[in-house]
Nucleic acid binder design. Structure first.
Length: 574
RNA sequence: CGGGGUGUAGCGCAGCCAGGUAGCGCACCUGAAUGGGGUUCAGGUGGUCGCCGGUUCAAAUCCGGCCACCCCGACCA
């Protein structure tokens, strides 16, 4: 490709709207163009990289036994209503009506469609196990698209669905995918951490995410440096320190005028936050719910949602709280009637806590569970934090932010039961198919790659996913000798199927080098009067400062060798 | 949806407060010189000032409404 003909120009200044590195570099390098919030066009350079990533994914999916097919983006909303996931997705689902007033949705994912097809295609245990996948455009009406390609409303995703006869079969399929995913990240040169994740509204047993640890990420990862325990903060467990406040004492009412927050109460009574009881009120699918947790710990709403089993969970409004007869700021689980109460297990290991008095300006001292109140459910609903102890090895937990570049789920039989995807077992009984779902967002992977691999000059592509392998950079091109040599080298490299981008512009060396660094092609070949004097060209890796001279004679063979060596460093299958 | 911000040429911005022929830099076109890390000079092309309405002799500028985009939060298989 000649840069003079390339669709998409590099820029010196970047649109003010971009403030994430990958977004800035993608714009600066002329690789993407924004059309609306969270909607992008991919220009030729980005498209080449995206296709390479897709192909790596395709190869690994095929290797693991997946069969590629294509499912439609346009889906009847009815299908989503059958599984109830229209509610779970809520407004994230793009929906509209066709000319006959039938409601349609642009698929945010394809479990429903895949399951529907499986229900008619798979009939016997002899048809299982089976894995199908496609690479296709998804639509999600995100509340807030952000950070360039990191969170968008239209994006390409590879999603694979596995179908098995039982839990053990699912485990096998799941592990195959897990290995395939690790191969994908390795081949893309992207260090992705495998972590435990919440499986969300669809339920299911296990779920894992692949995270690229990076400050611009949107997810918090809690991990243990000692035993490699790592989990999404929504899922993470920790050992809560026990707080002993002595033997249970008699309950006592105390005046706390105007002290309505944990902060105020604790400092007023000169006790640590951990000796207080915090009350939080939620509306869970419309039901008013009272949540109690130790004062120093935050509620993990994902855990809470799973415990309650609701689809919509939000903090209750002041009106709702008042309607439930609760005195905000002085709420208490004691003497509560007819309100669903959920408590974190942290309150069972502490004694003599300070709780609200259920009337203004009053708190209760020496509150003890279960002596003074009961909860409908007692379990872990706490947000794990860095500094707490690892649930596996007692080591100290740490926290980082990360970009989610893959998510895999053991779905179990939830969807197959809803949609009637059954098979006949060897005994002749009808059984629901065990399903798994495995997704990778291609564009986000690209963004994560750039976040992970760049310097202040530009992108640094791994050889496997670079738009081009070689950047050919002749200096003083109007010198006819250079021009001719450069054209020859360009043609030689191309004839050996080396992917080369040729800076055939008559620009100054500074401009060319800066653009080369910005585009981030792994190998740069410079040809100038200076190198020609020695019958050589300069070859420089994007990752290195220094260039070295390579003779013109045998150049193509040498370059081919460098490329394949670079590629082989990226592929060591798990 | 709550909070904050921005819309003027392809990009970055000034002009608005105090209404009076729309400007600068980059990019782009022409020419010349130069050139190993965004080179210089000269000449040029390009704008419904986000949209609709109001005030006014006159609106990029003042007033009202709307829209779009960005950031933080909430939300998120």
């Amino acid at each position: 490709m000649r840069i003079s003909k390339l669709f998409g120009k590099t820029r010196r200044e970047i649109p003010a709207e971009a403030d994430t590195t990958s977004h800035q570099l993608l714009l600066k390098a002329g690789m993407i163009h924004q059309i609306a919030a969270g909607v992008y066009a991919y220009l030729p350079l980005a498209w080449r990289s995206l296709r390479k990533i897709e192909n790596i994914i395709r190869e690994e999916m095929n290797e693991a036994g997946g069969q590629e097919m294509m499912m439609p983006a346009l889906q009847p909303l009815e299908l989503w209503q059958e599984t109830g996931r229209d509610q779970a997705f809520g407004k994230n689902l793009f929906t509209f009506s066709d000319r006959r007033d039938r409601q349609l949705t642009l698929g945010p994912t394809h479990e429903e469609v895949a399951t529907k097809i499986a229900s008619s295609t798979i009939q016997s245990y002899r048809d299982l196990p089976m894995m199908i996948y496609h690479i296709q455009t998804k639509f999600r009406d995100e509340l807030r698209p952000r950070a360039g390609l990191v969170r968008v409303r239209e994006f390409t995703m590879k999603d694979l669905y596995s179908f098995d006869i039982d839990e053990e079969g699912l485990d096998i399929s799941y592990n195959k995918m897990l290995r395939a995913y690790q191969n994908i990240y390795n081949r893309c040169g992207l260090p992705a951490l495998l972590i435990e994740a919440d499986s969300g509204a669809i339920g299911g047993k296990d779920s894992n995410e692949f995270m690229v640890i990076h400050e611009s990420g949107e997810d918090e990862v809690i991990y243990c440096p000692h035993c490699k325990y790592a989990a999404n903060a929504e899922k993470a467990q920790s050992i809560k320190d026990k707080i002993e406040n002595g033997k249970p004492l008699p309950i006592e009412e105390i005046a706390t005028p105007g002290m309505s927050s944990i902060e105020q109460v604790a400092s007023f009574l000169k006790v640590p936050h951990s000796q207080t009881l915090k009350a939080v009120f939620y509306s869970a699918d419309g039901e008013f719910t009272f949540v109690v947790i130790r004062g120093d710990i935050e509620v993990n709403e994902t855990k809470l949602k799973n415990v309650i089993g609701c689809t919509e969970l939000r903090l209750a409004t002041e009106t709702e709280t008042a309607a439930a007869g609760i005195t905000t700021g002085f709420a208490s689980p004691i003497g509560l009637n007819g309100i669903k109460t959920i408590a974190d297990d942290s309150i069972t290991t502490s004694t003599n806590l300070i709780a609200g008095g259920n009337k203004a300006d009053t708190h209760l001292k020496n509150v003890n569970y279960p002596r003074d109140f009961q909860a409908d459910i007692i379990t872990d609903i706490a947000l794990a934090r860095a500094g707490e102890s690892c649930p596996k090895c007692q080591g100290k937990l740490l926290s980082e932010t990360g970009i989610e570049v893959g998510h895999i789920f053991k779905l179990g039989t939830f969807l197959s039961q809803k949609l009637g995807a059954m098979f006949i077992d060897p005994e002749g009984n009808s059984q629901p198919i065990f399903m798994g779902s495995y997704g990778i967002g291609i564009g986000r992977l690209l963004a994560a790659l750039i976040e992970n691999s760049h310097d202040d000059k530009g992108i640094i592509w791994p050889m496997s996913v670079t738009p081009y392998q070689v950047h050919l950079c002749p200096l003083y091109r109007d010198n006819s000798n250079i021009e001719e040599m450069a054209e020859n080298i360009y043609n030689d490299l191309k004839s050996q199927e080396i992917e080369v981008i040729f800076d055939d512009r008559n620009e100054s060396p500074g401009v060319k080098f800066n653009d080369a660094d910005l585009l981030g092609i792994p190998l740069r070949i410079t040809i100038s009067p200076r190198t020609l004097e020695k019958n050589s060209v300069e070859v420089k890796w994007r990752t290195e400062k220094k260039a070295h001279l390579i003779p013109l004679e045998g150049l193509t063979v040498k370059v081919k060798e460098l490329i394949s060596r670079s590629l082989s460093e990226l592929s060591n299958p798990v």
